[in-house]
Design a binder for these strands. Structure first.
Length: 444
DNA sequence: TCTGGGGTCCTAGGACCC
DNA sequence: TCTGGGGTCCTAGGACCC
């Protein structure tokens, strides 16, 4: 029997915004999506006031009247605080799976498996609760971010336990013992089970399955026939049978996507080229960060689907590289070619996308080169590789975009930047990742 | 005026191969 | 008149997650 913990940061983005603004501690805070479009995070105080995903423009006045603090999203801040939380969690076990920016699974089995003793659920209860209490207390003390902690013999049960922990004052809940499980799953709506979303829960409801306990009683074979193998595994996990193991090593990604709404609708070919060049450069940089190379690139341009009064277009084109690459210059070249194919006069574009696919790790890329490269090729590529590494290092040290290609350069030198840059009017300082934004303590 | 971004996996059906 | 069987690969569509 395994012991899985799931640590989940409470209202993560909103909590990050509060870390350096203690005067906001008990105030409602919401965080907006890119381009200040929708509400994507709410502090506990803000949850009763506004629904997730609400377009900001519809509730702007209402939020102002109710004293809600509104922030643009600031991913360099959230990413850095997430990293601190993950490092803290690694205090208790090296077996950590970072599941998302604000969640991690911990395999705690090793902390309890002593050779002389088989732990029963009862033996486990008290020491496990003590450990949970310690984790829930330590993470906010070290990072400023409050968390909830759920425990179970499978990841799906740890997820469910975490869900239950959120509504408890101690922010801890365990589903380790079969008895606890039976009672808790009885009142656990099926749509809250990890892996069962809106559509599937409707389908389950049609068969009269409304709670996790209902699902557990069903024959897995029947689920397999009427749903898919994924739902069968979910059922088995709810029974305590492990189907989704801890994934310690992050796998090579299948695709890398940079897609963004523009600050305003764009019709100019030049502006589109600059925006796509910037997306492509940023995708290439992410590719290098995970030591990967891509085999093909897709560029897509979309008009605003809400503007039914305007002509619509959602064109995409793909092109393969001659060989897998992570070279910004080559990727930009192909992106430019595709942009010219996709772009059409007379449309007002609202968003653009660059997608890199056919991703392989660099060792695969190198073995491919070894097959076909001449000596000059090897030399040329080595230089290019060093150039990219130097660019990445400079940008890491002095800020994203310090060195960039001419293709990305903004023609408009006004202080808002180019017209495609999404607006973020309520952005907090990047307190922990930018020297200029470092908080300053002044002596009296 | 204003509506996010970035991923994964499974299945069914068609093309193609021997 | 009769018209196999088994496999792989690709794609589109649908579902999920945060």
């Amino acid at each position: 029997m395994k012991i899985y913990g799931l640590a989940d940061c409470n209202s993560f983005f909103a909590s990050c915004e509060k870390v350096f603004r203690p005067e906001w501690r008990s105030r409602p805070v919401v965080v907006l999506s890119n381009n200040d479009g929708c509400i994507i995070a709410r502090s506990a105080e803000a949850k009763p006031l506004v629904a997730m995903g609400t377009p900001y423009f519809r509730v702007r006045e209402f939020l102002a009247r109710n004293g809600v603090i509104v922030r643009s999203s600031n991913f360099s801040l959230y990413g850095d605080l997430s990293h601190r939380v993950m490092l803290t969690l690694a205090q208790w076990t090296a077996d950590v799976e970072i599941y998302s920016i604000d969640e991690a699974f911990l395999d705690l089995t090793g902390r309890f498996a002593q050779p002389a003793k088989e732990w029963s659920a009862d033996d486990l209860r008290t020491p496990l609760a003590r450990l949970g209490e310690e984790i829930v207390a330590t993470v906010p003390r070290w990072t400023g971010i409050p968390i909830s902690f759920g425990v179970g013999p499978t990841k799906t049960l740890a997820k469910a336990a975490n869900h239950l922990a959120k509504s408890r004052p101690d922010r801890y809940f365990s589903l380790m013992s079969p008895d606890e499980r039976l009672a808790a799953l009885q009142n656990f709506p099926i749509e809250e089970v990890w892996g069962i979303g809106r559509r599937l829960s409707k389908k389950f409801h049609r068969y009269g399955l409304k709670t996790a306990a209902d699902l557990v009683r069903v024959d897995p074979k029947w689920i397999r026939e009427n749903f898919t193998i994924v739902q069968e595994m979910t059922l088995r996990e709810l029974r305590g049978e492990e189907c989704f193991p801890l994934e310690d090593e992050p796998p090579t990604p299948q695709s890398i996507r940079v897609s963004r709404s523009f600050g305003e609708l764009i019709s100019s070919r030049e502006e589109i080229h600059r925006a796509i060049a910037q997306f492509a450069a940023s995708a290439a940089q992410r590719l290098r960060r995970c030591r990967c190379a891509a085999s093909a690139i897709i560029v897509q341009l979309d008009t605003n689907r809400f503007r039914t009064d305007l002509p619509q277009s959602h064109e995409a084109r793909t092109i393969g590289f001659a060989e897998p690459t992570s070279d910004t210059i080559s990727i930009l070249h192909h992106a430019k070619f595709l942009t010219d194919q996709v772009y059409q006069e007379g449309f007002a574009y609202q968003r653009g996308m660059v997608l890199l696919v056919g991703i392989v790790d660099q060792s695969t890329e190198r073995s491919y080169r070894a097959l076909f490269d001449t000596e000059e090729d090897v030399d040329r590529r080595a230089k290019r590789f060093e150039l990219m590494r130097a660019v990445d290092q400079v940008n890491r040290a002095f800020g994203t975009g310090k060195i960039h290609s001419a293709a990305e350069s903004a023609a408009r030198g006004n202080e808002d930047g180019p017209s495609w840059r999404p607006s973020s009017k309520f952005r907090s300082p990047s307190y922990t990742t930018c020297w200029a934004d470092l908080p300053v303590v002044k002596a009296k």
